[in-house]
């Protein structure tokens, strides 16, 4: 009698507490099934969520979990943690901060993998498989059912690398203070680097330009441009779209190349110029001498 009394009270308490939360956090199987018709459109390939179930169970479920919440059985052992697809928040986007990525963005991430994480490049998949998986990934989040992806940012044609552009890029690096986290030499040792946390409160490192790693969201010049203009949502990396003009953004891309360990035209020019790391004690608008 006493036990059932407790049970009854507990049950009431639980239901009463969970009721307002139910629509916020807990998605039921029915919620997922309602979205099973999710499609993706990448080029002229149409992906169907339903068709990805086999591949997802075979290749993805171990980390991303049955419900796509990133709580697969490998969750405790991997770092960075697997993405929670239910939130609909993604690092690698061509779209502005706070918006959903395009189907192409998600497909690119699957194909590229995420360097320095347990997510390998899934370049063995056909375009159809990737498109199906993109649709499946989208079906986990109610956001894709109610919101449209953001409008991809415009990337103007890449100009010619010049010494002036590299010097101008160095000024942008100083002005928007990339060095606060990435450090003046790009070694991820800026004053704020050690306290960075992701949106879930887990420690996260700034990108180190100097050790030969690939940036997580791609390493082409266009990728670098996109990374700082859209920001990496879910991480401390903000969008600089309001504060760097498109032409200046190319200058910054060229300057970032001079910090990277791979040989490049930019690096050669920087060496010739004897370019020094930015001076963090300089006033907000550095003089541009060098």
């Amino acid at each position: 009698m006493r036990i059932t009394l407790h049970k009854s009270l507990l049950c009431t308490a639980a239901v009463v507490m969970v009721f307002p939360l139910a629509s916020l956090a807990q998605q039921t199987k029915a919620d997922f099934e309602a979205r099973i018709g999710m499609e993706s459109h990448i080029g002229h390939v149409t992906g169907h969520a339903k068709s990805a179930q086999y591949d997802y169970r075979r290749y993805c479920v171990g980390c991303h979990g049955d419900r796509g919440d990133g709580m697969g059985e490998n969750f405790p052992w991997v770092d960075p943690k697997p993405r929670d697809f239910q939130l609909g928040i993604f690092k690698c986007r061509s779209t502005p901060t706070g918006t959903l990525p395009t189907d192409q963005d998600l497909s690119d991430t699957i194909g590229r993998g995420l360097d320095r994480s347990n997510m390998p490049p899934w370049n063995v998949f056909t375009d159809q498989q990737k498109a199906d998986l993109v649709a499946w990934v989208k079906h986990f989040s109610p956001r894709f059912a109610s919101e449209k992806p953001g409008t991809p940012i415009q990337i103007p044609a890449e100009p010619e690398v010049t010494a002036d552009r590299i010097k101008a890029g160095r000024e942008v690096f100083a002005r928007v203070q990339c060095w606060k986290c990435h450090g003046v030499t790009g070694e991820a040792n800026g004053p704020s680097a050690s306290t960075l946390q992701d949106d879930l409160g887990r420690p996260i490192a700034a990108f180190n330009f100097t050790e030969g790693s690939r940036p997580k969201c791609g390493s082409s010049d266009q990728d670098l441009y996109r990374i700082f203009m859209t920001g990496l949502d879910g991480t401390p990396m903000p969008s600089f779209a309001d504060n760097i003009k498109p032409d200046e953004a190319w200058d910054l891309v060229f300057y970032l190349r001079t910090l990277m360990s791979e040989p490049s035209k930019e690096k050669a020019i920087a060496k010739q110029l004897g370019l020094k790391p930015v001076d963090t004690n300089a006033p907000a608008q550095p003089s541009g001498q060098q």
Partner: peptide, 29 residues
């Protein structure tokens, strides 16, 4: 301020409020 900030609200996206993260260096609009 004459130092860079990033303004980073962290709502629960399930409510319909979507997190965003924008830089505001000195003099930013």
């Amino acid at each position: 301020d004459q130092t860079a900030h990033n303004i980073h609200p962290n709502p629960n996206p399930m409510t319909g409020n979507i997190p965003w993260n924008q830089s505001q260096p000195p003099g930013a609009p």
